[in-house]
């Protein structure tokens, strides 16, 4: 098992890092020469070149961070609301829970296309709804307008992954001991403060794990953005940028440099999370 993982993950990763120091091209990947740090940053004729000097790269870094913070934030809040609702006892709970699983089961590509259709500038139902409600006066071009396209991407992602958040939160909620709530009820504490003082602290660890998972996932986002807005610079994420350099511009060295930076960012986050997590586990035992 470890050997397979090494073959499919470890070795390619090392090769990618290696390529980032070369000028290999996609069509002829076996012939390349060493160029040192040229793909990352180089000073030539009074100008800086390389990934770290490319405004498009920093734009994609900013896009990715914005996307991650906003969509994970929204997913957490919505997921929490859905989980709290599903945690109550009512008839038809199974039905609603099954319905929340649907977005999770829909392939990302399909959900991007579905939303692409709903957000269509001329025939889209979202524009129609908003116009009927009188919120907007004329149809908006969601996926092509620079100010709106990022929100369109976030909308799709929130729709697709809120169920994941909701289910993880629900699982945490159902493991809570009921005696805390009985005590709070006896003491006559308002439900809202019960939520903030009792429920939230108790589910915090599980919620944090779910958030970390989603953050790491959102940082490498590729397919939603690629399908919904293709290579538009306004929404380009780090993964889209790296792949564009790699495949479309055939510049394996440059693309590899970009993916190496992305890998380092994610690795740094993971390590700091694991370090903090281990500290906590150590404290418990």
């Amino acid at each position: 098992m470890l050997l397979v993982l090494a073959a499919v993950a470890g070795w390619p990763l090392l090769r990618t890092i290696w390529f980032s120091f070369t000028d290999a091209s996609f069509s002829n990947i076996s012939e390349y020469s060493w160029v040192g740090l040229e793909n990352y940053l180089v000073y030539e004729d009074g100008l800086w070149f390389g990934v770290l000097a490319d405004p498009a790269w920093w734009q994609s870094v900013w896009n990715t961070l914005f996307f991650t913070v906003v969509s994970v934030g929204a997913e957490t809040v919505l997921g929490l609301i859905i989980a709290l609702t599903l945690n109550a006892q009512f008839r038809g709970r199974g039905l609603i829970r099954a319905a929340t699983l649907i977005p999770w089961a829909v392939p990302t590509i399909v959900s991007a296309k579905m939303w692409g259709w709903m957000l269509h500038d001329q025939f889209g139902i979202i524009n129609d709804m908003l116009m009927t409600l009188g919120i907007i006066a004329e149809p908006l071009n969601w996926t092509a307008n620079a100010d709106l396209s990022m929100w369109a991407v976030i909308m799709v992602d929130v729709w697709k992954t809120t169920p994941f958040m909701a289910l993880l939160t629900l699982a945490a909620l159902q493991m809570l001991p009921s005696d805390c709530y009985e005590a709070a009820k006896v003491d006559g504490i308002h439900p809202v403060s019960v939520f903030f003082k009792v429920t939230l602290p108790l589910i915090m660890p599980a919620l944090m794990v779910a958030i970390i998972f989603r953050v790491l996932d959102a940082l490498r986002v590729f397919d939603v953005i690629y399908v919904l807005t293709s290579n538009s610079e306004d929404t380009m994420s780090m993964s889209v940028y790296a792949r564009q350099q790699l495949v479309q511009f055939q510049d394996v060295g440059y693309g590899s440099a970009a993916s190496t930076v992305l890998f380092l960012i994610i690795a740094l986050l993971t390590i700091s999370y694991l370090y903090l997590g281990r500290k906590k586990i150590g404290g418990e035992s």
Partner: peptide
């Protein structure tokens, strides 16, 4: 946790 794009060229 790997970003898939990081192994793309190596793979």
């Amino acid at each position: 946790m790997f970003p898939q794009v990081a192994v793309l060229s190596g793979l």
